[in-house]
Each structure stands twice: as structure tokens, then as C-alpha cells.
């Protein structure tokens, strides 16, 4: 049986416009990953370009649009995505394309840096580690595991519209990762920087981020938490209501 693979191709030195190119491949006997298939295609056509590194879903290099849905090529088995033996691979939507399946992720990384993705504390660190109860540490589960693959932000219509002003689900998940960390003491400052009409409030709960996250994370829930902190503050920190003065 044959697979028909339609691949988004664009080389800025040769192509005025991107185009879809069709490849016919013999359907492999066992179920392989989309990345394995791309590697097979590349052996025959070395010009096919995509990013890849860990090939096990932890580095976040090979996010792409697979038959209409964002995902990681290395942990997406063909059996899950093939439709009538057809496969269409496109770059992550909404970001400028550098070549083929490779997008320019500058805007995505800028939003990540904007939320100050590092622990900030007013207190001098002790000689040993800072203590944290398992219960407080549990609050970081579902947040710290993000691999920055950009599948979520590039599936988000709000991010497509305002990639410069809306922080986007990936970076907001990280914003909440630090808001939720009992060791971080800059909650007030962090919230103040998110209180404008765009940074957080452009999220309209479309939930594409949740449905595509290859790590099973829930940015939408984290955004909800941030919104509620913005509105009511947190009891322990007595955070004033930001953006509603």
C-alpha cells in the first residue's frame, strides 16, 4: 500500500511562493512516527528541511502541523493521523517560515522572555536549599514540564492576531509557573506586568492550546488562574486588584 505525503515546501532562494509537493512512499509495515517518515523522505530528497533533536518528545524541536493539527512529529504515530493513507505536513501556523517546515520562532521566544521566566526572590538564599513542602511543590506539576515547542501558541487565533501583544498560552503557562512557586516573591510585580488589555485578557478560552499540547498540559487553566489572581489577588499576598483601579 502507498502513502501519499503532501509536504509544504519553500526555499527563499528559489521559490517566490511556497507550494505543496507530493511524495509517494511505500507504507511501512510497522507503525512509525511522523519524524521517521520525514527522515525516510529526506534520504531521497536531501533538500527537505525540518528541525529535530531528541526524537522522544522532550526537546520540542519538531513541532509542526500534521494533517491540520499541531503536534510533535517524533511522538505522533502515523496510525493516529493518517486519513485515507494521506498525510499533509505544514509548518506551525502563524509564524514566518524560514524554509519548508522551519519557522522563525523569534516572536514566540520574545514573549517567553517578557514574562521574566526565572525565579525572583527578595530573601537571601540560605546555605542549603530553600525548603518547600511536597504540597507546594505539587503546584508546579503541569506547569514546569513545558518544552517550548510552540504547538499551543501557534494554534491560538488570539496569538495569530496579536503575537506582539498577547503573551500566548506557552509563555502564560510559564508566567503562572512562577506565580505558583512559593519560593518566588515577585507576584505583585509579575501580575502588574500582565494587567493590560492584551497580555492575558486576549485569551478567549478557545482551548486549542489544550487540545494540541503534546505534553498534556493545560495552559488554559493556568491562564484562568492568572485572570483570577488579577481580579481578586491571592489571600496570602494581599495582591491589589490590578487593571481595575
Amino acid at each position: 500500500m502507498e502513502l501519499s505525503v503532501s509536504l509544504y515546501r519553500y526555499n527563499p532562494e528559489q521559490d517566490k511562493f511556497p507550494y505543496m509537493k507530493n511524495y509517494k512512499v511505500k507504507k511501512p509495515k510497522k507503525d512509525i512516527m511522523v519524524l521517521d517518515l520525514l527522515n525516510m523522505l529526506k534520504e531521497d530528497d536531501v533538500t527537505i528541511s525540518y528541525r529535530r533533536s531528541c526524537r522522544e518528545g522532550v526537546c520540542g524541536s519538531d513541532g509542526m502541523n500534521i494533517n491540520g493539527k499541531n503536534g510533535l512529529a517524533c511522538i505522533t504515530p502515523l496510525s493516529e493521523v493518517l486519513r485515507g493513507n494521506k498525510l499533509e505536513l505544514r509548518p506551525l501556523p502563524g509564524l514566518p517560515v524560514i524554509r519548508d517546515l522551519i519557522v522563525d520562532m523569534t516572536q514566540f521566544y520574545e514573549q517567553y522572555e517578557k514574562i521574566k521566566p526565572f525565579l525572583q526572590s527578595d530573601s537571601k538564599p540560605p546555605e542549603q536549599e530553600r525548603l518547600q513542602s511536597p504540597k507546594d511543590r505539587d503546584k508546579l506539576d503541569g506547569l514546569y514540564e513545558c518544552i517550548l515547542c510552540a504547538c499551543c501558541s501557534t494554534s491560538c487565533p488570539s496569538f495569530w492576531w496579536n503575537p506582539d501583544k498577547f503573551v500566548g498560552p506557552a509563555a502564560l503557562l510559564q508566567a503562572y509557573r512562577f506565580l505558583a512557586d512559593t519560593r518566588d516573591t515577585k507576584k505583585q510585580e509579575r501580575l502588574e506586568e500582565l494587567g493590560d488589555p492584551f497580555s492575558v485578557y486576549r485569551c478567549h478560552g478557545i482551548m486549542n492550546c489544550v487540545s494540541v499540547c503534546p505534553k498534556g498540559l493545560n495552559p488554559n487553566k493556568a491562564i484562568g488562574e492568572i485572570k483570577s489572581m488579577l481580579l481578586t489577588g491571592t489571600k496570602e499576598d494581599k495582591i491589589k486588584v490590578v487593571g481595575l483601579e
Binding site: S53, C54, E56, V58, C59, G60, S61, M105, I147, L148
Partner: peptide, 11 residues
């Protein structure tokens, strides 16, 4: 050669 968080330490 890759964005730093794609390095193999991640595994």
C-alpha cells in the same frame, strides 16, 4: 547548533 533547551541534557 540548536536552541539551547533542545540540547541533550533535556533528556
Amino acid at each position: 547548533k540548536v536552541f539551547p533547551t533542545r540540547s541533550h541534557t533535556v533528556s
